[in-house]
């Protein structure tokens, strides 16, 4: 599976929507000297999921679980975007034309330029489509 090197482990943490929960998570990662590369928060009816790309997902999982947090791994992919008007369109259009649904996405702009983190319904198909189009996928080793 040549594609598997592009599958990145995101940590997803269940959190009640109340003051101090994100601070508790961030503090725990700080204590473990784990770096957060990108993150987002999704919220619904009083609870939420904190999603983060970290440099050491396994250690983050263990630390947070030990603290009582409910943590799961989620497979995501990271696509290089042009950091200019139309950059997001290019990536979204590739997936759309190939019938791949984006469940959620978040982006950051770092040393590598603009990067789009994607959770899609068919990971392997998404990887194949993006590679075929010539766009650049980041390997998980870049983060982890």
């Amino acid at each position: 599976m040549g594609a598997s090197k592009f599958v990145i482990k995101q940590i997803s943490v269940f959190s009640e929507n109340k003051p101090g929960r994100l601070a508790a998570i961030a503090r725990a990662l700080q204590d473990e000297k784990i770096n957060i590369l990108a993150f987002s928060i999704a919220e619904a009816n009083g609870f939420g999921v904190v999603r983060a790309l970290v440099d050491e997902p396994q250690r983050a999982y263990e630390k947070l679980t030990k603290m009582g947090f409910n943590v799961a791994f989620t497979d995501v992919i990271a696509v290089q975007m042009k950091d200019e008007p139309g950059g997001l369109y290019e990536v979204a259009d590739i997936l759309g034309r190939n019938g791949i649904n984006i469940e959620y996405a978040y982006a950051y702009s770092g040393r590598e330029g603009a990067v789009l983190i994607l959770r899609v319904d068919h990971v392997d198909a998404a990887i194949a489509a993006i590679q075929k189009s010539g766009a650049k996928l980041h390997e998980s080793s870049l983060f982890q």
């Binding site: 269940f14 999704a42 619904a44 999921v49 409910n70 799961a72």
Partner: peptide
């Protein structure tokens, strides 16, 4: 409380 073993990581599953 959510049962630890049933948390998939996805918001829609929680909903």
């Amino acid at each position: 409380e959510i049962n630890r073993d049933y948390f998939s990581g996805e918001l829609q599953d929680l909903a």
